[in-house]
Design a protein around this nucleic acid. Sequence first.
DNA 1: TAGATTGTTAATCGATTAACAATC
DNA 2: TAGATTGTTAATCGATTAACAATC
Lengths: 215, 215
Amino acid sequence: MRKQKVSSAVIRRLPRYYRHLNDLFQAGTVRISSNALGSSMGLTASQIRQDLSCFGEFGQQGYGYNVEKLRGEISDILGMNRSHTAVILGAGNLGRALIENFHFEKNGFQLTAAFDVHPDIVGSTIGGVTIRHTDTLEAYLAEHPTSVGVLTVPGRVANGLAERLVAAGVKGIWNFTNIELSLADGDNVIIEDVHFADSLLALSYMISDADDARE
Amino acid sequence: MRKQKVSSAVIRRLPRYYRHLNDLFQAGTVRISSNALGSSMGLTASQIRQDLSCFGEFGQQGYGYNVEKLRGEISDILGMNRSHTAVILGAGNLGRALIENFHFEKNGFQLTAAFDVHPDIVGSTIGGVTIRHTDTLEAYLAEHPTSVGVLTVPGRVANGLAERLVAAGVKGIWNFTNIELSLADGDNVIIEDVHFADSLLALSYMISDADDARE
DNA sequence: TAGATTGTTAATCGATTAACAATC
DNA sequence: TAGATTGTTAATCGATTAACAATC
């Protein structure tokens, strides 16, 4: 049932495809060719057709792709319709930003709980989500099977919490801390890092490089 | 004076090299071979040597690399010693998280100001940074040349602010909004996106794919 | 000196682009 | 039907890995 392994380059483009198709759909566009989609996204038509062919045949010769249908196919491929759930660990500024401003549900996730250790906020509710004490993490996860744990805690406690999440059976960790998590080899968990510092440093390189080119 | 263009794959690895070398330095490691660094980072020794050779010769046969020296070289390459400056646009949860918890100075940036339109917070100070009214953006940037503008505003105002930043001469935009900025072609600005949704959707794909494999 | 390890050249692998028969 | 556009196979390009002479 499983198709050949999809390269990470393709996987990284899928969310962009979804986003662009969604924009097109919102704008009322009914159909689009790989050529038109490519030029609006800065990709070649060939690459788009090649990428999509990893997953099936979604187009029609002479016509192109139906925007709504293709958006639906890609949302399925991305797992947006699998009722994934998430919990947030760490309700500091960043955790709160995600709770209040990030639309988990638009990306196919239900955010079911948040955890923190700070007595002032444990028991309160932010954006409809109750903040629980981190001590109750295992009890909660045992009751509520959870797809993804979101780490927005200080770096020094990140690895310990990651281990607890894995032990409790989460499938993925969305890691916003600035450390590289190290977990036991057999652990069947997928880690997705959002390293702000790496991103800013790449930008720093590029603007410095552009400066040099101007000289 | 400029060396051949460095591939984006290499650029994306540089911050990781920096981070690992910094960890090694903090741990008191004096020297390391490409082989040892590779196995700790999950890369081949060949790739590390190939990557570094884009920028110079930093090692010594039979010895390897001096950790502190190599860290210094990479920080130079990344532009961490160029006194870059940054301003934040949007002092909501995410903006505040960056102001209070992200260490700009550790990455070679000085965060000099933040801007918002909300009367309640304009004029206040967060983490030592004054929140100014967005109306005063151009006046501020004219006085204080700024390397990077950080967009932590609602998506609907992002593109307008990006245009104002570019007109005021920033070199880079660190974009945390969920939209793809569209700027005039001639604009000499580098955009670095941090798309939370794309990252979560990639994770969603990977955990869903792992699920299928187990079946 | 002998062993270790670099920087670089060559070989391999994988990803992107081009071409085109199939067909709506 | 004729024109447009797909999915796929082949060609090209670029990035990673392997090999090795140079040398600390």
